[in-house]
Each structure stands twice: as C-alpha cells, then as structure tokens.
Design a protein around this nucleic acid. Sequence first.
DNA 1: AAGCTAACGCAACGATCTGTGCGTTCGTGC
DNA 2: GCACGAACGCACAGATCGTTGCGTTAGCTT
Lengths: 169, 169
Amino acid sequence: MRAAVHRAVEELLAEEVGDGLTIPAVAARAGVHATTLYRRWGSVGELLADVATSRFSGDVVVPDTGSLRGDLQRWAADVATDLADPDVLALMRATLGAGGEQGACACRGDREDQLAAMIEREKARGGTAPTVERTADALLGPLYYRAIFTGEPGSPDWARGLVDLLLPG
Amino acid sequence: MRAAVHRAVEELLAEEVGDGLTIPAVAARAGVHATTLYRRWGSVGELLADVATSRFSGDVVVPDTGSLRGDLQRWAADVATDLADPDVLALMRATLGAGGEQGACACRGDREDQLAAMIEREKARGGTAPTVERTADALLGPLYYRAIFTGEPGSPDWARGLVDLLLPG
DNA sequence: AAGCTAACGCAACGATCTGTGCGTTCGTGC
DNA sequence: GCACGAACGCACAGATCGTTGCGTTAGCTT
C-alpha cells in the first residue's frame, strides 16, 4: 500500500503533471482513498519528502576498488547516471518546492555518509584524503547543480573528471 | 502593478506559507484581482519564474579588482551572501518546484554570464583562466548545493576559499 | 477465543481554486 | 475629436481540494 502510493507519485511526476500532483490525484492512481493519504502524510510536501527519502537512500552502493580515486570515480559516475534520469529530476524539483527544508535534505539521502565511508576507508589504509566537506563541495556540488539548475545533467565521464580535479596528481 | 505582484509573492514566500502560495492569495496581497494574474501569467509556476528572473538578474554587479582571483573571490562572497538570505532560498525552492525547467534556469539568472565576463577580462589582460564550465563547477556548484540542499548556506569566507581551490598557486 | 487498537474505506460538507463573460477605463493612432 | 484595442475590475459558475465523522476490518494481546 505504501509502495503503491510511492509508485503512483513517481508515475504522476513522470507525466509532467506539474502542479497537478495533489493528494486526490495520487490516491486515485494508487487505488486508495484520499482520506488515508491525508491521515498518513498530511500534505503533499511530507509525502514527497518520504518518497525522496526512499528513493535517495541506499540506491547507490559504496564501491570498493582499492583506491580512493577509483572509489570516488565510480561513485561519481553512478550518481551522475542516477541524476540524469528525468524522473529523478522531477522528483527532486517537486520535493524541493513542496517539502521545504525537510524535503531538501531528503534529496541528499545518505550520499554524504557514503563519501565519509570512502574517505574513512582510505584513511584506514594509511593514505591521505580530503575532508568530507571539501569532497562534497567538489563532487556533490557540481553534480547536483548541473542536474537541477541546467538542462544538461553531467555525463559519467565528466563526473569522473571532477575527481581528478579534487585529488592532487 | 507588476511590481506590486512581485512584492506580494516575495512577502508571501517570506511568511512560510508553504503550498498556500496561490494565485488568489497573491492577488489579494497585491491589491489586484485574481483574474488579472490568471490572464497575465496563467499559473503559479510561470509567475514564480518571472519573479525569479527579475530577482536573479542584475542584482550582483561584476567586480573589477584587477586580478581574476580578486574578482572571483569578491563575486563568490557576494553570491554566498545573497544565497544566505532565507527569502531568496524560499523563492528558489518554490520556483524549482512549480516552474519546471524554465524556473530552474531562471534561478541561475545571468551568473554564468558574469563568470564569463570575468574570465574574458582576464584573458584580455593576457593572463590564463580556467574555462567557464569548470569555474561554474567549482564555484556555482558548491554555492548552490549548500544553499539549497543543506540547511547551512556557505559563509563569504568559505566562498572565497573555493576560489583558492580552483586557481593554482 | 474475546477484546482492543490501529488502519482503511466511505460519504458528505465547506472552502478554495480555476476559468469565463461582460462592462469599464486608459492609452494610441488616424 | 474619434475610433479602436489592450488591460483591468467584477460577478458568477463549475470543479477540485482539504477535512471530519462513522462504520468496518485486520492484527495483536491477554
């Protein structure tokens, strides 16, 4: 039932409904009653934040290639591929608009945690690594900026190039 | 009259109305009739895109300090200060959600053009400069990412630090 | 097995939004 | 001076949304 609602939201977003993404519309598509949605989520914003949390958490596995550079390159390419999906873009834009602060953070998912995991692993290997903050600035910043604010999301190759600009050498 | 509507939109956004930003609400605040807004803009999304275009175009003057590093540092600090305003944040989030692709591009305003102007000036001086694309990745990316997706917009000092990471030396 | 709580379906109401037709006003060009 | 078109105010109607109250069902505890 929760799964049906989530699927209905993603389907409606994929159909360019724009501001037509309302509780009754989602309920009709999911085959449940609008009352249930009002009770469980209360508003479109909270529903979208919930969908975004599910969508952006755990969908990208943390790679383990043996080196920080390899890990980050693979991870950045995966994120770029994910952000290139128009449906994902529509979900993020709608969540940002209706979900406020909570929705915005939901769009990040656990991606900064994934960065922290890779950096921690490199340090455990005895290597040196930039801070999580700087890595987020150099990778997540451009990745999300291009996806959201420009019509052209970055390619996986371009994402890999970001890693080369971040790491020395 | 157009100015009154724009002011009404910004006021309502500053009041955390959330999804209560509707055409009738804006019309009542601006002292005009909703019919006029429906005819001129058609939807909240187009209205927000219009407001965003006005807000994000020409509000930051291109500095001229004599060096590319100085120009970029000053410009980045100005943009960071601008993005730290909660009202600006609310406007961007609402525009992203309701304005679709058009609204998203409106949030960039002419900031990439400003970057291009500074880079062009450095080249006219005979100096070397990174491409506009890479500069946007290194500056606009982190600036916008932190403002939109995290609750903590970057400080002007942090923004200046981004320039040092971009330029060699 | 009986009771209880939580969750969902259902119907109805009030409020709000979206869109249309008509009259008026203001500015422009002949 | 006069005709014309664009823009706005106004009132109204259809449609949709958000909310409440009640009945029913499923699952869990005792």
